[in-house]
């Protein structure tokens, strides 16, 4: 199994380390020729979605990635990655992958002073540590989207088929269970 990690900006190394520790092979995507390698799944890391989108647009990465996700490639987006996947973003009209039937609010908890850590329940896993950094959350999800976790009444993790979107940063903690969950999704378990 080989997982592609979008490495234009942000915390992609943390995801790669997480996959290394699970014994899963991965490679970084910086340009179109990187993307054209065979892959079984994709991780969209945290960082600034505006910065990633700018480069994705200019490098012609947006459409090829969009196509493979729509064709069934497993994808896991954290924080900025969730924004890239959302069909609607309440406070942003930029072009994005828009493959998941969710509406997202950017910087939903405000500025850095609103960033926080909490232990919260995740469907099928149990209580997991959650680090929210200037995080978004999901305000609306269609019926075909499964809600995996909520905090304070807001959806912070959801799944639609082989797409997984999470507001927080499992790559920043020691707990590997959410990455394991994604690997199982990739395998179709």
């Amino acid at each position: 199994m080989r997982i592609a990690i979008l490495a234009l900006q942000g915390a992609f190394e943390e995801h790669q380390k997480m996959l290394d520790s699970l014994g899963v092979e991965s490679f970084l995507i910086r340009k179109l020729s990187d993307w054209q390698q065979p892959k079984d799944g994709l991780i969209l890391p945290g960082g600034e979605s505006t910065a990633m989108l700018r480069i994705m647009n200019d490098e012609g990465l947006l459409e090829p990635i969009q196509k493979e996700i729509n064709d069934g490639l497993a994808v896991f987006g954290t924080c900025a990655g969730m924004i890239l996947l959302a069909k609607e973003v309440e406070n942003d009209s930029r072009n994005r992958l828009a493959t998941m039937d969710i509406t997202v609010l950017r910087n939903a908890y405000g500025r850095q002073l609103g960033s926080f850590f909490v232990n919260e329940n995740f469907k099928g896993i149990g209580e997991v540590p959650m680090t929210f950094i200037r995080a978004p959350y999901i305000t609306k999800a269609k019926e075909n989207v499964e809600i995996l976790s909520s905090h304070d009444g807001h959806i912070v993790a959801a799944r639609q088929g082989k797409q997984l979107a999470i507001s927080f940063h499992p790559e920043l903690n020691e707990d590997r269970r959410i990455h394991e969950y994604f690997i199982k999704m990739v395998k179709g378990e």
């Binding site: 900006q9 992609f12 945290g46 960082g47 600034e48 850095q112």
Partner: peptide, 18 residues
């Protein structure tokens, strides 16, 4: 402290950026 970790985490999100 949580705050120190969260603040270090924000810097991690800025990596690879300008």
């Amino acid at each position: 402290e949580d705050r120190t970790i969260l603040n270090r985490n924000l810097a991690q999100m800025l990596k690879g950026g300008v």
